[in-house]
Amino acid sequence: MTYQILDAPALQSGGASSQRADVLRRRRAGVAFALRRYGLLAGFLALWQIGAMLGWINPTVFPPLDRIIAATWTGLAGGALLDDIAISLQRSGLAYAAAVGLAIPLGLFMGQIRAVEQALDPILQFFRQTSALALYPVFILLLGLGEASKVFVIFWATLFPILLATIGGVKEVDRKLIEMATSFGAPRGTIFRRVVLPASLPSIFVGLRLSATTALLLLIAAEMIGANKGLGFQVMNAQYNFQIPQMFAAILLLALLGLTANAALVWLQRRLCRWADLAR
């Protein structure tokens, strides 16, 4: 569905032999790309495994990868870690959804009305610069050590990136496009729906992706204090009990969770903002 270069003549197609050469060349290019992109990661993992096995690095602190993977598998198959994943997802998911639900509508509103934005910007900047972790004790005092304070600290930290990105997106909508829509007699609501909203989507996604990372970061911190379940708790707990493979298993799962969340957002962004240049 995408024509990249409209004026270029179609490539001349050759015979069968050149077609085979083409397939071969493409396969080679694919291998080269995979090597360029994942080669370093693969090398790092191989070095870890070999290093731990041969004793180059302390295997009690860095156990070989096969033991970490085995511990992950045991935890998942036995269902022990599944509970932790579920509760972690629930905490971060709830907080993230609440932040998205509040920040996007509020940001769209604030970005449109200059007076509101100007009045609220200083306080927003102040809150944003106040680390959510520093405020966590305050939230615990207010909401207790249970679920509420954990969800709230994640909510607090994820709210601002989305809010500021949304406001920024709305403010940066090309005035000329809005004027164009006005010249066709479009009412305010239509201009918002058909011009302002689509134009600010790429910026909103920047906030969404930033916040998804923050959500997982804060999740771990929150679960390390006063929790008895969750992946963050498992990291701490395994370390206390010197179950180092189990500790790494929880860390591995957290990393996978982050990668999955980001991949999902990238996929959604590609679908919704196909027209915009993706930053890559």
Binding site: K176, L177, M180, F184, G185, R194, V195, R274, A276
Partner: peptide, 16 residues
């Protein structure tokens, strides 16, 4: 008004 339309210096197309 619906009786007029404007062509601007830039095309001002909606990129999406």
């Amino acid at each position: 008004g619906t009786d007029r339309s404007v062509i601007f210096q830039e095309a001002r197309l909606l990129p999406w």
